[in-house]
Design a protein around this nucleic acid. Structure first.
Lengths: 121, 121
DNA sequence: TTATCACTTAGAGTCTAGTCTAAGTCAATA
DNA sequence: TATTGACTTAGACTAGACTCTAAGTGATAA
């Protein structure tokens, strides 16, 4: 699969895909005789996982760490699990914070709708 | 209330408070005869609201727009409501995305725990 | 054959949201 | 009186995550 196809499939830019490769999150992707990238099934799976985790706000630094541990092999399994568990905690916390903010936002909108707004901001 | 006290109360830095003032999110804050900031109750309420919204990822640009509309007065009420409703939609979408990512993360951790991990990454 | 187009690279530039620095003022304490 | 410490300013710097540019290559269409 070419970089263009991958970019379309996952709705991201070629630049982002090359950037992820440069920082070592993906690949190194195989290239054909003309030096053009040909993404493998495994590349695609990594990209999908990374895209999903990025959309949750997990940093490239953390993902890079995870990928590096994975590439080190079996011996890092437990460490990888712990890394993921830490990110789970952070993510749950973030969702909680955002849900609280959402509730406040909804309340404020309700005040606007019922014209009861005699408040600050 | 001094900048230091406000910073402590809301767990943020003096720099961030001055930055918010500089971009017009807060204040202008009253200053005493020595030029030292003295935050009012209203300033504190704004800061609290802004901090909450920032923690949900609402951009400074959007918040600035909201604050500016507010300062324009009554006539902007409906526009403000719409702005907030848009942010509500975005926020709900973001929470949904993050919750999905969280589910995937949990599933992956489960695979680690049960040693069924014969997967990619 | 020439032009076009998608790809390649290294590296510079951008945006957001702070964060830090330098130089200065003021009030209170040693 | 001298120094300490918290505050002030303007403006430079940073981190993270891209995004863009310039210069070049190679395959295909006219």
């Amino acid at each position: 699969m070419t970089i263009k196809e991958v970019a379309e499939k996952f709705d991201m830019t070629n630049d982002t895909l090359r950037y992820y490769e440069k920082v070592g999150l993906v690949g190194p992707v195989k290239k054909n005789s003309s030096g053009i990238r040909d993404y493998s099934e495994e590349d695609l799976k990594r990209i999908e996982f990374i895209k999903c985790m990025r959309s949750a706000g997990i940093s490239i630094e953390v993902l890079k760490k995870y990928v590096d541990l994975y590439d080190e092999g079996e011996s890092t399994k437990l460490e990888r699990q712990h890394l993921l568990e830490e990110e789970q905690d952070k993510l749950e916390e973030k969702i909680k914070t955002m849900t609280e903010a959402l509730e406040k936002l909804k309340y404020k909108i309700e005040l606007y709708k019922t014209n009861k707004l005699d408040e600050y901001l």
